[in-house]
């Protein structure tokens, strides 16, 4: 016996569950935000116009480019390359390589970056005025470098931070490499690939899926750590330049806010970039994202 059409349940039109607690929370937050905005606008001591002026001063902009951005790029480049090398050494069959990698990581993890930068600025210049590469215990040199010429530049600062970063990147890279199924390396070897090529073309690209997200976080942390450069007497850098303006004109707060806003902008851009990288290295793993599928459908519908 089938029920008549009018007896069968139709569309659902139910009342939603009420959440009074959520509404209270929303109201409280709205009031707090309004108070904050009101204070930003009405309290003249914030002096926003001067903050924005500082942000676009030439030395400040140069500080952003050279100290913060170039410094981060150098430090992360050194950190990533050296970190991957350390990770591969750590997994080597040779116990000397394993030991060196372990000792390096232990050493650089223990030294605060501020102290490391100071050491690079003062210590190395004092101990080794010039770097020479040659045969040990002889006076044969192939290559000489004057340390003083670089000592207060972003190159030395980036190198110091990069050496420290490598210790952390090594762990991240190792986790990434270990996350790749062993069968991948075996399949690559079975088609005749050398171990080096297997690592570069098959294992590392897959490890990237695991490596990229934490590396993005490390990069964002590094942007902020370039504010330590003054420890190595590197002055062409955002934080130093912005606060210099502020203290010169007794508008300390404006200087600090100028630096803060710049860091906020830089880190936001990086976070967007990170999500794109994650998509790129995630290709071939799982179905395309809901958004990509939507896009594909749109493209199909447009035809």
């Amino acid at each position: 016996m089938t029920p008549q059409a009018e007896d069968r349940p139709g569309l659902i039109n139910a009342r939603p569950v009420r959440h009074p607690g959520r509404w209270v929370a929303v109201v409280v937050i709205a009031v707090l935000v309004a108070m904050m905005i009101s204070s930003f606008v009405t309290n003249d001591k914030w002096n926003w116009s001067y903050t924005f002026q500082i942000m676009v001063q030439k030395p400040v902009i140069q500080g952003v480019y050279v100290g913060t951005i170039l410094g981060t790029v150098i430090a992360m480049a050194v950190g990533i390359v050296l970190g991957i090398i350390l990770a591969i050494m750590r997994m080597s069959n040779n116990f000397v390589l394993r030991g060196v990698s372990f000792a390096y990581t232990a050493f650089f993890r223990s030294i605060p970056r501020y102290v490391l930068l100071s050491l690079f600025a003062v210590g190395i210049g004092y101990l080794y005025n010039t770097f020479q590469i040659g045969v040990p215990f002889t006076s044969i040199h192939f290559f000489t470098l004057d340390y003083q010429a670089y000592s207060s530049t972003v190159w030395i600062g980036g190198l110091a931070l990069g050496l420290s970063e490598a210790a952390y990147m090594a762990e991240i890279a190792r986790a990434g490499i270990l996350s790749v199924d062993k069968g991948q390396a075996e399949a690559a070897q079975a088609i005749g690939m050398s171990p080096g090529k297997t690592m570069r073309r098959i294992v590392l690209p897959q490890a990237m899926r695991v490596i990229v997200p934490p590396t993005g976080n490390e990069t964002i942390a590094m942007v902020k750590d370039t504010s330590l450069f003054i420890a190595a007497q590197i002055t062409l850098e955002l934080y130093y330049q912005a606060t210099l303006f502020g203290s010169r004109t007794f508008q300390v707060m404006s200087g600090l806010m100028a630096a803060t806003l710049w860091y906020l902008i830089l880190c936001s851009v990086l976070m967007v970039g990170q999500s794109y990288l994650e998509k790129y290295f995630g290709r071939g793993f799982g179905a395309p994202s809901a958004k990509a599928q939507q896009k594909l459908q749109q493209v199909a519908a447009d035809h």
């Binding site: 075996e186 399949a187 070897q189 079975a190 088609i191 005749g192 290295f281």
Partner: peptide, 26 residues
């Protein structure tokens, strides 16, 4: 050496129980 062993393997194709295709490549 590893290189010489790799060269010897070129003559031999292998198919695995679990396929082991490279997932990041088409």
């Amino acid at each position: 050496t590893d290189k010489q062993i790799a060269a010897q393997r070129r003559e031999i194709g292998m198919v695995f129980q679990r396929f082991n295709l490279f997932p990041h490549k088409t």
